[in-house]
């Protein structure tokens, strides 16, 4: 299980500075969230951990080792499920296993196990176009979990879903995470989501992206969205983001 760290990371896209001296540390096995408005660079930071972007300067580390390339150890869940539309649920979930040359029988077992975990047993032969948005994201999560990664990186995974489905999915995510020891990093612009799911919340401000605050949440689990402390945190973060009048 891994620690994730960005150390003095700067990122330029051409002449645009997207990230400015970012320092983020996610402890092994903990759940961290980055909250910020659109364009603050939080997705870029996440993609660096995934190995899909490299910093212009600074270090991206997983367990102290520099991150160079994408790896199934650090699975990324995309905002738009990114399922292959021409493959069935089963083939999509098993894709990483196929790449790793896992034999068919073992693949099948692992696929069925993980589909049960995300409440999609029996949907093996459906195509993504036949599923609802929430179900597609579940398939994406299944595809990630079946690889048994040390780290799960989530890029606004519930952004495209309706409010109620979002709440259900958040509970499901907690259920899947707790006890697994996996390190979780979630990107969201939903403050409540961050407070509900994470142990540590980083607040980022836009261009150039900077971390403006770090909250180590002192809230019990299971979280109560309506507790006073929860509301206090929400208020503080909203103020930091300039969302209060």
């Amino acid at each position: 299980m891994k620690t994730l760290e960005l150390r003095h990371v700067n990122k330029m896209f051409g002449s645009l500075q997207v990230l400015n001296d970012i320092n983020i540390k996610v402890d092994k096995g903990s759940f961290a969230a980055i909250v910020g408005p659109s364009g603050c660079g939080k997705s870029t930071a996440l993609r660096m951990f995934a190995g899909l972007e490299a910093p212009t300067s600074g270090e991206v580390l997983a367990d102290g080792i520099p991150v160079k390339d994408p790896s199934p150890d650090r699975m990324l869940i995309f905002q738009e499920h990114a399922l292959l539309p021409w493959s069935t649920v089963e083939d999509n979930v098993g894709l990483g296993l196929e790449f790793a040359n896992v034999p068919k029988k073992e693949r099948q077992e692992r696929i069925n196990t993980v589909l049960e975990k995300v409440n999609l047993s029996g949907f093996n032969h459906y195509y993504p176009s036949q599923l609802s948005g929430g179900m597609r994201q579940r398939v994406a999560i299944a595809r990630a979990l079946v690889m048994d990664p040390d780290v799960l990186l989530l890029d606004e995974p519930y952004g495209a879903l309706d409010a109620m489905t979002r709440l259900t999915m958040q509970n499901e995510l907690l259920r899947l995470w707790s006890g697994s020891g996996k390190t979780m990093l979630l990107i969201t612009h939903d403050i409540d989501e961050a407070l509900y799911l994470a142990d540590t919340v980083y607040v980022m401000s836009p261009r150039p992206g900077q971390v403006t605050a770090e909250f180590h949440l002192d809230l019990p689990r299971p979280r109560n969205r309506n507790s006073e402390r929860f509301a206090e945190y929400r208020q503080e973060i909203m103020q930091l983001l300039g969302l209060t009048e």
Binding site: G51, L52, P70, S71, F78, E80, A82, L84, W86, F99
Partner: peptide
């Protein structure tokens, strides 16, 4: 779709696998 290619890379695909399982089918 670049995201499909990225998803496959994160899943551990090498270049021939990217071609066969994402690029050509798409």
């Amino acid at each position: 779709n670049k995201t499909h290619l990225e998803a496959a890379r994160v899943l551990g695909a090498n270049k021939p696998q990217l071609l066969r399982k994402v690029y050509l089918p798409e």
